[in-house]
Amino acid sequence: MSSELSRGYDAVVEVGLVVDKLSEEVAALKETVHGGVEVDEKDIKALTELLTRQLVKLDGIDAEGDGKTQRKMEVRHVQGLLDTLDKLKARNSYFCNRKKSAQCETSESGVGRVHAPSL
């Protein structure tokens, strides 16, 4: 079925579907953090870990031609998401630290996900 020109294409697309789902979660986290609400750092770590797994999975696909082009796109996509998560993590821990030093109790009032417009 898969000729030499599109070897690995289907496998890459399959991983892509998983990545798309994860990217929605990244977007939701981003919205929350950028809205000034702290998130559980574990959520960021978990997403990072899951995306890294997809990245390694992509690396492991034997791809040629279209498959290779598709893989490269997907690798870029995942790395972009991972970079976003890295930035979110930094920003989130900044909240965290500021909160601790100022002894402010915003988290009590801001429980749950507040969907503020993203910056």
Partner: peptide
């Protein structure tokens, strides 16, 4: 992350 990918490879 690059280390991890290279190791897996």
């Amino acid at each position: 992350r690059a280390c991890l990918r290279l190791r897996a490879a």
